[in-house]
Amino acid sequence: MTIYYSEDHEWINVEAGVGTVGISEYAQNALGDIVFVEVPEVGDDYAKGDEVAVVESVKAASEIYSPVTGEITAINEALEENAALVNSSPNGDGWFFKIKISDENELEGLMDADGYKKFIAGLE
């Protein structure tokens, strides 16, 4: 199990070829109160960098880009009723979707936890 981070503040937790994707603590904090998450449909295919989900606060809508290429295998249905989970537990219960990774080599372009820490430190 390894967690990777993208420069768009998504994390992907890879286990047996399937990645669980969510947004980082830094991102949820910057977005403020999350009111809605539009998740993809199970079975749909996405390429790395495709717009795969939208996370909405009251005054902003931010696109979530797929960190890898693959097929959606599950979505977090709890978010439909309770989008606030993204605020309260961005790294846990607030995950967005699971994706079956087509090419694990794509993970190499992502950061590890330390790298991401340095990345956000450099932002401000």
Binding site: V35, F36, S57, V58, K59, A60, A61
Partner: peptide, 8 residues
């Protein structure tokens, strides 16, 4: 309002 033009 995220449906609307001033945000989306």
């Amino acid at each position: 309002s995220t449906r609307e033009q001033h945000i989306r």
